[in-house]
Nucleic acid binder design. Sequence first.
DNA 1: TATGAATGAGTCTTCATTCAT
DNA 2: CATGAATGAAGACTCATTCAT
Lengths: 245, 245, 245, 245
Amino acid sequence: MTTVTGAGDRSDARRNRARVLSAAGEAFAERGLDVPLGDIARRAGVGAGTVYRHFPSKHALVEAVFAQQLGELVASGERRMSRSAPTEAFFGFILEVVGTTRSRATVCDALDADASWPRPVLTATVARLHQLLETLLRAAQRDGGVRPEIGPDDVVALTVGCAAMLRVRHDRAAGIRLVRLTLDGLRPSAPVVTEGRSFRDNRGPHPAPACEQCGTVLTLRPTGRPARYCGAACRQRAHRSRPSP
Amino acid sequence: MTTVTGAGDRSDARRNRARVLSAAGEAFAERGLDVPLGDIARRAGVGAGTVYRHFPSKHALVEAVFAQQLGELVASGERRMSRSAPTEAFFGFILEVVGTTRSRATVCDALDADASWPRPVLTATVARLHQLLETLLRAAQRDGGVRPEIGPDDVVALTVGCAAMLRVRHDRAAGIRLVRLTLDGLRPSAPVVTEGRSFRDNRGPHPAPACEQCGTVLTLRPTGRPARYCGAACRQRAHRSRPSP
Amino acid sequence: MTTVTGAGDRSDARRNRARVLSAAGEAFAERGLDVPLGDIARRAGVGAGTVYRHFPSKHALVEAVFAQQLGELVASGERRMSRSAPTEAFFGFILEVVGTTRSRATVCDALDADASWPRPVLTATVARLHQLLETLLRAAQRDGGVRPEIGPDDVVALTVGCAAMLRVRHDRAAGIRLVRLTLDGLRPSAPVVTEGRSFRDNRGPHPAPACEQCGTVLTLRPTGRPARYCGAACRQRAHRSRPSP
Amino acid sequence: MTTVTGAGDRSDARRNRARVLSAAGEAFAERGLDVPLGDIARRAGVGAGTVYRHFPSKHALVEAVFAQQLGELVASGERRMSRSAPTEAFFGFILEVVGTTRSRATVCDALDADASWPRPVLTATVARLHQLLETLLRAAQRDGGVRPEIGPDDVVALTVGCAAMLRVRHDRAAGIRLVRLTLDGLRPSAPVVTEGRSFRDNRGPHPAPACEQCGTVLTLRPTGRPARYCGAACRQRAHRSRPSP
DNA sequence: TATGAATGAGTCTTCATTCAT
DNA sequence: CATGAATGAAGACTCATTCAT
């Protein structure tokens, strides 16, 4: 049972394809879609021709990067759908989408129909993502966790907007608080309140505590000190990003 | 055989500068910052050399456009500050910023510190804008209209995020509802609210009625039918964008 | 009454356009259509960008070269039509076409519908040439100078074929004799003929003496030594190409 | 895990060489010498490396194709020389050369000394072809079938020219008529005449009937209906290319 | 050994910037 | 001065050739 990569069988080809894809992902994230292909090639440690062997045009490379990122996201969302309660799944997925979007060369650009760049071939994956969002949304609405008048297009717009917030707000924890504040607006008639260092519901049926680092919705134990992170990895990351006192 | 320009070449120059600036603003808004300089010159009805006479580089032109737009915005915000109640001024200004941001080649890009493009020289104007936002924010907070834990950076991030929402949500009225929903999250212990056809408010001290077309906060008369638009222009625009029955 | 060049009014632009066109014509003739555009630019003494200012693509440049050459040819043919007897005009024009075709990057390629290169935009000029050939042909046929079963397509094919002969046969005078031998096949029931040192005529109504250098049909004086060339220029050129004894 | 090729790798190699050669011949004929080597390899069903194992460069491959085609042609001509009457052999061979030349990537290009492409190594084969043509020509001239003043270089030029005609004249039968008309010019003092649908000598010592499809000179039986084609294959091909009534 | 992946020089084309008219 | 032509440094992309598998 091998992973389908789209490359031939040769190991070097597979490796190079992966390296190019990853280099392109990084380059796009850091410097935007305008980064020269030669730079991507250099970053991947291959020649320009190798990039073209695997992706017939720069456009195709952009699409491949997007498709991969979208694909991973959709898969994660689908897993989430079957494992969590509807409302948790919905908010958790949006937080994940938003939280893993690093720059504009990423998922949210694909959702943004105005972005002049890629799309065409993405249609299939984007459609899958839209479908998933709609499914999650409707389930959450049936669950009473999301206002009924919200539609899928609203969710897409909110997602893109929240990603933008996170990109602009360099303090990551603060950015996540903002995003959660915004998303809480989707909850029905939910008074949004805050206390302590983060925004929190005080009553409302859906407190939805989340990891301060990655935004994953946390399932809290009824006793003991409430968790701030979804696990050790995020705790460590948060620790590292704190100013050394 | 010289061109006779007659009296006062300076007025010519001033007019040309303005035309270039306006053409550049439109071009950036429609096609992004990558639009060729030659196109801008053609749109302005001048030669490429004339653009360079007024702006020593494309970079400088971009900055000038941003600075002008930011300047207008800041001026408008300052006026607003002296004319409206603090909370209204704050929300009204943000809605104005968001609503007049048409594409990425605009104000919000300037606020976005990640955007690779301009910044350097903008610092002064951006600082003024930040200053203004902070002033408006603090006043609104003293007025009790905005949660106290919100900071200026949060406002900037929210603004950029809301602009992104509006860009993605092609149904403009729905986009504005989303933005208002998001901004309502800033109100203290606020039931999330909107008026009109959706997102119904249930109580809450700050219904903040706004123009359904451009989002400007409306000062409602205590009697009579509540206004839906800020003026005739927006009413007409809304009318035009309704499906003909 | 100025010549329409397609360039703007500026003298340097006009000069550059002409230089590029001429450089391209030479380069195509010497090295084929595959010659890099940079080489053409260098040969013309301009930058690559200048070539692109005048011709939006290499394709367009090729077309412009062809169109110019075709245009000159057609104009010459039209003049010929009004000045010479029909049969003389017909053969004279074909000899001119053939004789001025230097390499494949030239007129005959345009006639050759198989040539993958240009055509599209050429259609108009090529159509004019075809029209002219047909007019000349029909007139010559009415004059009794060309077999009636010959059609315009035959003429085109013969023209291309004769040009190929001339290109291959490096001895130019011998090449022209071959061409004339071939064209004489078009004359009705014609003993195939030529004058001078080879291909002797014995009777036949159409001796059609021609310049040994360029193939122009000569109108011979009834007395004196028969002319071998159409003028001093061709005599001189023939002299130069003779091996120095 | 090596590929087991079994007994006699040499036969594999020989077969591959032949396949590459044939694929290259087709590709050159269809798309010109500019066809990428990768396409040839794919068409041959081998890898690019295999092409290079047999031919050290593209240049060498082109030469090999030419040499093979020339070789076949020369062999055919030599056979013809020993089997037919001199004049028939001469015209028949030229018609064969012309008729089997499909595009420029072929024999005639090799004869054309201007063609920038191959030549160097071809010298030997080309020399053999020239030798053959000269032998055939001289024999035909001794036979009284070709004008005495024609030289080998004339024959080469005529051959190339006739191939060009055939290439341009898309109606193949008409093209062959043109070629024959042209070649008839080589016959001594031969009035060239036509009757019916094709060009035919009415007296002249050498009627030289030929296949209307491929141009092969036909040996006619003294009785019965005169043959129009050299065999069933050509008759069928002609039938297929007729417009369905 | 055959395969096809990797390479990188070379080509067309764009566009910010300079400069002749 | 305004104009728009000239410039040339990149960038996307191709393909002959080499080399790892």
